[in-house]
Amino acid sequence: MKESIGSRLVRLRTAIKTVFGMPDYEAYLERHRRVHPEKEPLSRREYYAEYLKHRYESGGPTRCC
């Protein structure tokens, strides 16, 4: 089966976000609905704040020389 252009674009966007370490709210929502369907998901803004805190406050290096 051939993949539609729309879904290819979505995959490309997800790939770009992962490569550059950007938050992916759509992926979070999709996962949240699957794993915790009973709980209310975070808003986009809350998710972003949570993501940054997790990414930069965990103490490991994110970038090299």
Binding site: A15, V19, C64, C65
Partner: peptide, 17 residues
């Protein structure tokens, strides 16, 4: 995906050095 992860890893290791 391994290609995406290769990009992610490369973006993390590459720098001015």
């Amino acid at each position: 995906n391994k290609w995406v992860l290769l990009g992610h890893h490369f973006a993390a290791i590459a720098g001015a050095g």
